[in-house]
């Protein structure tokens, strides 16, 4: 897919007005504002904004049949705004989604998590060591690369709690990384659910990449309701605090007696609220794991 980038350089006092205009027409109301900085000579991680330089404001349009008309409209509005403040002529560049969507892959390497788990990006070479549980992954645009602390916290917890023959539910599977890990750690059956079709596609591809068979992992598009009334030995949900709190009762209901719940996607300040919601749903909080600002909670029915 191709995108049209529209950018102007402008007097900083015009930035709010241009942003408002761009938000009105740009994809997802998205606007980017980039200011020049003067790095601090003494302290590397400090900087000051360069107030003498103009600010760059950008927005994006899908490159479709309406694009030219919208670009024209934006240019007209900018002309009006330009009567009040300095605004450079509108710069138009076309970019291919491939160019930016995959740029980060260059920096994505083989990654060790927990005691034995190894995440291998599908485009990297790697020689396994004895005992390695290796997961091959091409996350595409789905969440779950192993680069994020919440994914690592969940992987390490799965390594500690999954035992052979278990039934596992992975809610909000993203790239499928946690579901695949559970399968490789010995779970007999894994149900992976995500409400985002992009994630479902990615999880299916990754399951195939890892040779995890359909009889072991099932990937479904939908919400927790897609699990039906089935209960599991272990449920893992790496989503966000708000959603976990809302779903606390349903998550508890999806657990077999003595079943284990692993939840993450939680920032430190919200960990207490989540733990309270889990307790209110009748679960026993067992463990709290941290990495940076992020927390994973383990609870038991």
């Amino acid at each position: 897919m191709k995108w049209i980038e529209l950018s102007v350089e402008a007097d900083r006092e015009a930035v709010e007005a241009i942003s408002e205009l761009f938000a009105k027409y740009g994809y997802n109301a998205g606007v980017a504002i980039e200011e020049s900085i003067i790095p601090d000579e003494d302290e590397e991680d400090k900087y000051e904004l360069d107030l003498d330089r103009p600010v760059m404001v950008s927005t994006w349009l899908p490159n479709d049949e309406r694009a030219e008309e919208v670009r024209e409209l934006i240019a007209q509005h900018l002309w009006h705004l330009g009567q009040m403040r300095y605004i450079s002529p509108l710069q138009v560049t076309i970019s291919d989604e491939e160019d930016w969507a995959n740029a980060w892959k260059e920096h994505y390497h083989v990654l060790r998590v927990g005691r034995h788990i190894v995440i291998r990006p599908s485009w990297r070479e790697y020689t396994a060591e004895p005992g390695d549980v290796s997961i091959e992954l091409d996350p595409g645009m789905a969440f779950g690369t192993g680069l994020h602390p919440t994914t690592r916290l969940c992987l390490a917890a799965l390594e500690d709690y999954v035992t052979a023959g278990m039934s596992v539910l992975d809610l909000g599977t993203g790239s499928g990384i946690l579901a695949i890990a559970a399968a490789k750690l010995g779970a007999a059956t894994v149900l992976a659910i995500d409400n985002d079709p992009v994630a479902v596609k990615s999880a299916n591809e990754n399951a195939a990449l890892n040779g995890v068979v359909a009889s072991q992992i099932r990937i479904a598009e939908g919400t927790l309701a897609a699990a039906g009334n089935v209960q599991f030995d272990l449920v893992v949900a790496n989503i966000i605090a708000k959603v976990i709190i809302e779903l606390a009762h349903d998550l508890a209901a999806a657990l077999l007696p003595d079943g284990t719940l692993i939840v993450s996607g939680i920032i430190e300040d919200k960990a207490d609220s989540v733990a309270l919601a889990l307790a209110a749903a009748g679960l026993h909080n067992r463990e709290r794991r941290h990495e940076g600002d992020w927390v994973a909670l383990v609870a038991q029915r």
Binding site: A23, A32, I33, E34, E35, I37, L49
Partner: peptide
């Protein structure tokens, strides 16, 4: 070292 500072709406 800071490489860039940007704001997204």
């Amino acid at each position: 070292k800071v490489r860039a500072v940007l704001t997204l709406q």
